[in-house]
Design a protein around this nucleic acid. Structure first.
Lengths: 211, 211
DNA sequence: ATCATAACTGAACGATCGTTCAACTAGAAA
DNA sequence: TTTCTAGTTGAACGATCGTTCAGTTATGAT
């Protein structure tokens, strides 16, 4: 046996938590690079630099890994947006604008993210676990929007409006604009989306949006 | 050879156009029933009552069949909505309401349709043909919305607003509400979506929606 | 230094996929 | 009735998929 062989072990052992984290990151990277084609255990394990069998050693099935990746990516995006809102530190109206700015930035408005989301939606059909991850994370987003609208509604100059309906409408519009831009980025500019959302809230606060 | 065998031919010959139509219908039916699992040539041919090989006799590849099915389903839905708008026959504002009514009816607001759409979006990644079908049909929808907004804007009592931005915002909100309801039908009622869209247009026509 | 443990490997398996193609036959034309 | 065309069949093929598991080895404990 040569020195080279003696000094270079064939693999390194990691704790289950470390490995799971690496696998989740490799999964996201594969999805970004190749979309649904990247979702095989073989490409994921290649990206993570481990053998195919190790995935099923740490996860009961591939779907469990995908569900983990879903939750990580969704909560990362949500936290990134919320961080920027908190840093803005302004009044409720300014915080809403900060939210829009973060939403229409390249961190969220990204074709790669839609590509990943489509894979997740696609898997939600078959996998109960993936569907649960989706429901959990999307509910978090909608709740945050409703909270910000509630803050707006409690301003002295604010008119009365239905928080629930307003949250449904606003999050619907945000989702729809995000979806349409990702499907066809030439259809409008991010600034257009920003302008529309700002006008929407202005309209709501003027009292002429009868919700 | 018995009479039974003599009187029952093993298959019936159809013209290519007939068969293609049957295959498209079988494809849609499979997608409605089983989602992405139904998209194998074997389940499609079983649904159509023909052999596996016949699909590649009429279509160069499976993707071409899917693209055809996409276009058929999308144009069917668009025509259904537009028919109801034409039948309403009212003024531009009433026609817009008819459009909303048709959009938030069970013909469009249907989880089965989203399931099919996700498969289409999913395939748009890999298949150029499917992507072209998507771009063509979604552009038709947006154009119709812009046309109706233009009719609204030309009413004597209408304020000035940017047709393009208004069309982007409205179609975004419609898409987003449709998507969110299909992903989780318990989050709101179709009537809620209707109410939000009506209020949106009222707001636009009142001149306080500064687009 | 030795041992026990568990992270790790990778060949193998069975299932399913889209596509091919030689053989068959329904049905119209001659 | 016979011939010919082209719609139709279905076994077979090679590729790829997720999962399994017997064997290997890194690494901390003794």
């Amino acid at each position: 046996m040569t020195d080279t062989q003696k000094n270079s072990p064939k693999f390194r052992r990691h704790s289950p938590d470390e490995r799971k984290k690496e696998l989740v990151e490799a999964t996201i990277k594969c999805l970004e690079k190749k979309g649904s084609d990247g979702l095989s255990v073989r490409s994921i394990s290649a990206e993570a630099g481990i053998s195919v069998g190790l995935i099923n050693h740490h996860y009961p099935s591939k779907d469990d890994l995908i569900a983990d990746a879903y939750e990580k990516l969704a909560t990362d995006i949500l936290h990134h947006v919320l961080d920027l809102v908190e840093k803005s530190g302004g009044n409720p109206r300014e915080r809403m604008s900060a939210f829009f700015d973060a939403y229409f930035s390249s961190h969220v408005l990204d074709q790669k993210i839609l590509r990943i989301w489509i894979v997740f939606w696609h898997m939600s059909d078959k996998s109960e676990k993936v569907r649960l991850s989706h429901d959990k994370t999307s509910e978090g987003f909608r709740q945050k929007i409703e909270l910000m609208l509630r803050d707006l509604g409690e301003l002295p100059e604010a008119p009365n409006f239905n928080y629930r309906l307003a949250a449904i409408g606003l999050s619907g519009m945000l989702d729809g604009l995000w979806l349409e831009w990702c499907l066809n980025p030439t259809s409008f500019e991010p600034e257009d989306g920003l302008k529309i959302c700002e006008a929407w809230v202005d309209c709501l606060m003027s009292g002429s949006f009868k919700l």
